[in-house]
Amino acid sequence: MWQTMCLLGFYTGLRWGELSGLHRHRIDQRRSRLFVVEVNTRSGIKEYPKSSKSRREVPLPSHVLEVLERHIHRLDRDAVVFTTLTKGRSGRLLTYLHTLVGVTAAPSRRHSRGARRLRPGLHQLIDALDGEPVLVLGRRSDVLAANRMAKALFTDFDQIPVRHRNYARWMFLGEEPRSLFVDWEDQARAAVESLRLEAGRDADDQATNGLIAELREKSTEFDHWWEEHRVHQRTHGSKRLHHALVGELTVEYETLTLPGDPDTTLFVYTAEPGSSSGQALDLLAMWTLTGTGTPRTGTAQEHD
């Protein structure tokens, strides 16, 4: 039961009270989704008010639904899905969830965001991957480094003030992303869900909480999607772009987490050789070598 509950919580972002208050009839197996209506409180399971934003419909990934179906197949329609659970045992749930995603308990880091310095060898590595765009992201998706191809494909992050040099912030508040990404909504949602996962690792981190507060205040989309309580760990995927210089292309990305430094992740972007997207990347690489500077898809910001 614990494994099923943790898996469901990880992929849906449901709170403890919502998980322990979930009823069998709130799961729509045919449509692969569940409905959050009740919450488990100190005084028992109660329905959210009908006007509450907490009432929502949550899609279920196929592999999560498969595990959940094995758990509920003998339950009565009105039964509570996860029984004999109390909030006092939530620490066990959190410990198991951390194990699933490879997160270990760490001391709270109540500090403000500051510039992180990468070791020289890492800069040499991403520069050596000259034919592919490479981004290096740190905690809360802070952009720590980008090679020339990444700057050409996305934006020149070096021109953004250090305190604002963050991928999620750029996605929602930058000038370029909405016109650059054909699938902007998908990419923006993923950024929200990744940040929620990050926030769950250290709820007291000042820099993370400050970033979330700023984005909720300045972006209605971010605020709306944050309320959905979904989490997502980006390990691979694709992005569809309409680049000002080379037109439409799709890039695939894979992530590499550095041994001994789990807070630093390399995002390496590629396209299928010989495809129109591969040709677009080749053209962009030629432009960065022969052009007068790094191409920009929006207005540059000044350094601090």
Rank of each mutant, 00 (worst) to 15 (best):
G44L: 10
G91K: 09
F10R: 08
L100Y: 06
Y48G: 03
R15N: 07
R74V: 11
T86L: 03
D76E: 15
T95P: 00
R89T: 13
R15L: 10
L8S: 06
M5A: 13
I27F: 04
M5W: 01
L94N: 11
F35G: 01
M5Y: 01
V80K: 02
L100F: 11
L68W: 07
G44W: 07
P59I: 13
R92Y: 10
T95W: 01
F10W: 05
R92N: 11
R55G: 07
R24M: 09
R55M: 09
E66R: 12
L100K: 03
C6A: 15
D78M: 06
M5N: 01
E57R: 05
E47K: 08
P61I: 03
S52Q: 07
L94T: 15
L65S: 06
S43P: 00
V81D: 06
T84I: 04
L7S: 06
W16V: 14
L75C: 07
G21F: 09
L7Q: 12
G9R: 06
I45K: 02
V39N: 14
T12S: 09
H73M: 09
L100I: 15
S54H: 11
L14V: 11
T95M: 07
E18R: 03
D78Q: 10
T12P: 00
V64A: 01
L97I: 15
T83I: 10
K50G: 01
F82E: 11
D76R: 12
Q29H: 02
V37P: 00
T83N: 02
L19N: 03
G9E: 10
S32V: 08
T86K: 07
P49N: 08
V36C: 09
T83M: 05
S43H: 11
T95A: 13
E47M: 06
I27D: 02
C6L: 07
R42K: 13
V80P: 00
T83L: 05
L75G: 03
G44Q: 07
F82N: 08
W16Q: 05
S43R: 12
Q29W: 02
